[in-house]
Structures are given as C-alpha cells and as structure tokens.
Amino acid sequence: MSSIPTVIAVPRLEQPGRLTQARVAVSEWTKLHSLRSTRWSLLAATVLTIGFPLLFATILSTRANPLQEHRHSALEVALAGVNVSQLAIAVLGVLLITGEYSTGMIRATFTAVPKRLPVLWAKLVVYAVASFLLMLPCVLIAFFGSQAILGRKDLLQISFTHPGVARAVIGGAVYLMLVGIFAMGLGAIVRNTAGGISTFAALFFVIPPLLNVLPTTWNDAISPYLPESAARSIFALTTDAHSLAPGPGLALFCGYTALAIAIAAVLLVRRDT
C-alpha cells in the first residue's frame, strides 16, 4: 500500500471543447461501431439481403418450368431478402436506444449531453446513413446477382433502366433505412428491448394479416394506409387498386416515422432517466 501516492495529479485538459451536435454525431458513430451486437445485426442484414435473392434465383433456375415462371417477378426475386433483413435492421434500431437503458449507459450519455435531444438526432442520422450506405450495395448486388443467375436460363429478365426498376431496387434500401429509424423511434418510446421489438413486430407482422378477417371492403379501405403496406409500396414495381403508389406510400411512411420520432422526442425530454 505504500506505493500509493498521497497526491494524485489528474492531467489537466488544455482546451475543453464545447458540446456540439456534430460532436454528438461522431460520438454516436463510435458507439454504433464499437458494439458486437451492431456488427452481428448488420452482418445478418447484409447476408439476408443478398443471400435470399441469390438462393431464390438459383432454385428457380434449376427447377424452372416455363409454365410457372410468370408466377414470380424479377423484382420479387431481387428484393426477396428485404422482407427478411428488415427484422435485423429493425431489431438493431430498437437496440441502439434500449440497450442504453437496459445497461444504464443512458445516464452516462445524458450526463455528457444533458439537453438529450442532440443524442436522439445523432442516433437517427448516424443509423440512417450507416444502414442506407450498407444496404444500397446489398440491394444492387441482389438485383444484378439474381438477374445473372436467372439469365443463364433466360428467365425473368428485366433491365435496370426499365421504368420503375431502379426506383424499386434503390427503394429497397430506402425502405430498410426508414424501417430502422421507425424502429428506433419505437425503442425510444417504450425504452425496453422486448417491448420495442414486440411493438414493431405487431405493427409489421401481426396486424396486417389480422385485417383479413375484416369485410373485404373495410380491409381494402384500411390496409393500404397501415405503416407496413405504405412502406412496401416504396419497392413495389407495380401497384394494384388496393395499394398506394410509391410516392404517396413513401410520404405516408415518412409521416408515421416522423410521428414516432416526435413522440419519442417529447418523452425523451420530459421523462426521468
């Protein structure tokens, strides 16, 4: 014990910097990439977004029977992974918020950024940019990869420049990004991992099929306006009478996302930590 110095000199900080929104964003980027759960979720999203279409295309091209070919569309194959990887993206969106609450990290975060809202904005921007930049190449690889596989048997060929195709493929990445930040908003509202994931799953996977028990006219009147179906129109090539066009669908889902974030922001400032 004699080795413990009586006077412990803490190194001084020459120039303490001000707290800024940009710095909070840098901090959130560090938080994002320094967690194992982030790396696993994003790896899962990447593998699923690319792997599913390639698998789907391979199965179709080996078993193809010209009579069944038209039951699938080229884009359905290319974007098949989006339906699965959205879960990984949504779970990560929830976790990036709720993980701070479950571990107590949020107290350290809000001690460093006591105004709190800059943390929410930074998390949203960092996750939106990171997920979009990662998912964009994934959907492009999925499209060209699945087309190449199908092309060997001359099946389901569609050009990237065909009207609506580029929009739908890139829309797949936009969809995943928006789902991620929508889930982040849900996570910030419920502040609990299980609750956040359940809420997302209820909105996206449970409620839409439940509406099928309604009379058809009701179902057709309500379904297109649910968050999930509005969002899906972003990457649909064709729209039928009972779904929204890509533009309005995108706008409506952005509205839902903005609403979730607005509620989260109000609660974030008001609630005790």
Partner: peptide, 28 residues
C-alpha cells in the same frame, strides 16, 4: 464529472470505446 452508483456503462462496449464516445461529445 459524475460517478453514479448504479452502473452506467454499456456492458457490450470496451472501456476504451466507452470513454472515447463520451469524450467525443466535447471534442476531447
């Protein structure tokens, strides 16, 4: 500077990145 009684650290992050992330909010 605060040390709160209940743990306030993400269990999945290393000590270095925990400190770095907090430092970066102030450009430290």
């Amino acid at each position: 500077g605060a040390l709160l009684e209940a743990r306030s650290v993400h269990t999945g992050r290393s000590a270095y990145y925990h400190l770095l992330a907090l430092a970066q909010t102030h450009g430290i």
